[in-house]
Amino acid sequence: MKPSELKKFIIGSLDENTDPQLSAKRLVEEGVLFDFSKGFSDKVLNKIMSGTDAVTREIEFTRSMRFAFNRVALTGVAAIVLLLLSIFLAEGSLSFNSFLGIGDTYDEGIISMLTGK
């Protein structure tokens, strides 16, 4: 097809009443081909496989973080229980004042301490 014919054909191929499939086929016959380079599929598969490794590593990392978190959380809970027990044994109760270490201080005592009377 001469360039002038090809130009006409391109414009005509967008007409609503032309068969788009036939036009597309004709363009291919004229050498208008679109394809990816050689080795395209191999590159994609390699990327997918290396990507899968990355995903696996990410999953493994999350799993170890979760495991570490469980250990830390268990130790933390044990520490809190021990703290509560020691407060209870030392102060005789688990009130807010006991937590602040002022469990056996009377209000009058604080007032006289602050005012000096």
């Binding site: 097809m1 360039p3 090809l6 130009k7 391109i10 363009l27 004229e30 050498g31 208008v32 081909l33």
Partner: peptide
């Protein structure tokens, strides 16, 4: 690379 000059021209034009 195209098999013929004409096909190359068609692709270039599009």
């Amino acid at each position: 690379d195209f098999e013929s000059e004409e096909k190359r021209d068609a692709s270039e034009l599009v």
